[in-house]
Simulated assay, not measured.
Amino acid sequence: MSYPLLTDMVGVGLRSPHHQPIIAQRPDIGWLEIHSENYFNRHSPQYQQLLAIIEHYPMSCHGIGLSLGSVDPINREHLKQLKQLIDVVNPFAVSDHLSWSSVNGQYFNDLLPLPYTEEALDVFCTHVEQVQDYLNRQLLIENPSSYLSFKYSVIPEWEFLTAVQQRTGCGLLLDLNNLYVNSFNHQFDCQTYLDAINPDTVKEIHLAGFTVKQFPEGEIWIDTHSKPVSEPVWKLYRQWIQQNGKHTPTLIEWDAELPSLEILLAEAAKANAFLQREHHHEICCQQ
Rank of each mutant, 00 (worst) to 15 (best):
N177L: 03
Y147N: 00
H247S: 13
P58F: 00
F92N: 02
H247R: 13
I141P: 14
P144V: 00
L135K: 13
V164M: 00
E204W: 10
L14F: 05
K227P: 06
L207F: 03
P228M: 02
S149C: 05
V202W: 09
S16D: 08
I220R: 15
V128W: 14
N109G: 09
I29P: 05
L68D: 09
P91A: 12
A120R: 13
L172I: 06
P21D: 02
L66D: 01
V103P: 07
G169F: 01
V233I: 01
R167S: 05
S101G: 13
L236M: 03
R137V: 04
I34W: 03
D122E: 12
F124N: 08
I283N: 15
P73G: 00
V10H: 04
H62Q: 08
P199K: 06
F184M: 08
K246I: 13
L51N: 04
P199H: 12
G171F: 02
Q214N: 15
I54R: 14
A196C: 11
A269G: 00
D195P: 05
K203D: 06
T192Q: 14
P216F: 01
Y152K: 12
D189L: 12
F124T: 00
H279N: 14
Q287A: 12
G169Y: 00
L121I: 02
N109R: 04
W240V: 07
L139T: 01
V12F: 07
Q286H: 13
H56W: 02
V212H: 15
K203P: 04
F160I: 01
W234C: 05
T7C: 05
S101F: 00
H186A: 08
E262R: 09
I64F: 03
G30A: 01
Q287W: 10
A273W: 06
L139N: 11
I53M: 06
K151R: 08
P115E: 06
V229D: 03
